[in-house]
Design a protein around this nucleic acid. Structure first.
Lengths: 229, 229
DNA sequence: GTCGAGCGTGAGGAAGTCGTGAGGAGCGCC
DNA sequence: GGCGCTCCTCACGACTTCCTCACGCTCGAC
């Protein structure tokens, strides 16, 4: 999570850099408006903290400049407490406005609130192997280039467990309890069936599985493509 | 643009209703937290204004209740000016926090800032598929070149959820809670009905849906046109 | 070579899910 | 009150999914 701090007071910049860095933000800084715009282009911050009263290019102009091509969340930090200033900044495109002096707690909370809205979907959304693409977000499986593969809910759940553990052995018992609950810890024959159907739908040669491999007496293992070969 | 105002002081509610109504908002009101949650389910506001100090069910609990199934923007209005209160509310899921007494100008500006983020879709104001054009801004559907398609409010909401998640599977449960509130997580048969009616109005061959596809046992999926073919 | 355990796979019935037509309740509007 | 619209209930047929059963195969033990 990268944040751009723009303020013409070096002491404030320094204090914010330290504090924000300490709580885990990646911090970029700018000392005036022009620098802030340049930094926004170069660094692609996830959120911008902006002082209104900067020399040369003011905070308002920075907001307007940003909004031309980006919708990164902007938090304005200003010494001016008047409603007119706030209205002006917010209507120019700022997302929040906090007046100096401020409590660091509140600032951090407002930053969290701003970034919360824009950050979801951080992890790996998909996995591909062979000509198959498994999209965990869309919950869809397609055979490249464009053929949808239909899976039943149970098939999907088993595939997800396996593919989310690439290279690792997943015991039969593990899969059974995760799908049918703790009561089913031994296979009545259905797991075999579903794996069989998955292979029929996904493997080029179902009889000789390349990706959904059986480990005798233990369970199953998803073997991803080796990018090295 | 519909706004839900929740405050236990009738005078404030009255003042806000008048002012917000005058600037063009459609206003719903609630006098306590329980009422607020009920109104959120029934009215589906585009933004919620929440007083923290309400009797019975407090503002914080309302936020938590809302966040279980909705991500409507929440602006907290409170007499408590301490940083701790702000942090608590913002971290509970509120998007902004303003202290009483406040300037009406600023309140309106903050509301504009909040709704700006969520109402005009960040990417597209409209989506087209087949000979159908869905305009999110105008909340209208037309069959090209010029025939308006009439949707009921509920139909529109379901269509919007699906079309705003192109290619993604949307769980039946997800749709149900987002439209009928957290109490309805299992289908009594009405979702099926509305989807059926949507298909009748939008699909060329309702019996063989091209765009509004069913995923057995899981939910529905909007499959957009493939621009590549 | 024989045997048995573990696994893959086909067939088929039970159970559940989905689509759709008919129709009643509630509500605002004339 | 009558009308039109929307929401929701109910019921039934069609279809999908789940699971059982049975049988054949593979592979290691002896």
């Amino acid at each position: 999570m990268k944040i751009l701090v723009a303020d013409d007071d070096p002491q404030i910049v320094r204090a914010l850099t330290l504090t924000l860095g300490a709580v885990g933000y990646d911090v970029a800084t700018a000392g005036d408006g022009a620098e802030a715009l340049r930094a926004a282009v170069d660094e692609h911050p996830d959120v911008v903290m902006l002082d209104l009263g900067m020399p040369l290019v003011g905070g308002l102009e920075v907001i307007e400049g940003l909004r031309g091509w980006s919708n990164v969340p902007v938090l304005v930090v200003s010494g001016r407490a008047g409603a007119a200033d706030k209205v002006e900044a917010l209507d120019a495109g700022a997302d929040d406005y906090i007046t100096k002096p401020f409590a660091m707690d509140e600032l951090l909370a407002r930053l969290r609130a701003l970034t919360r809205r824009t950050s979801p979907t951080p992890d790996q959304p998909a996995e591909t192997f062979g000509d198959i693409r498994v999209d965990f977000v869309a919950k869809s499986v397609v055979r490249e280039p464009d053929e949808a593969v239909r899976l039943t809910p149970t098939e999907w759940r088993i595939l997800e467990i396996l593919v989310r553990n690439p290279g690792r052995l997943v015991t039969r018992e593990d899969i059974l309890t995760r799908i049918w609950g703790p009561a089913h810890s031994s296979d009545g024959g259905y797991l075999r069936l579903y794996v069989s159907q998955l292979r029929k739908k996904l493997e080029a040669v179902p009889a000789r599985p390349r990706y959904l491999q059986t480990v005798q007496g233990m369970g199953y293992r998803f073997v991803p493509d080796d990018p090295g070969s």
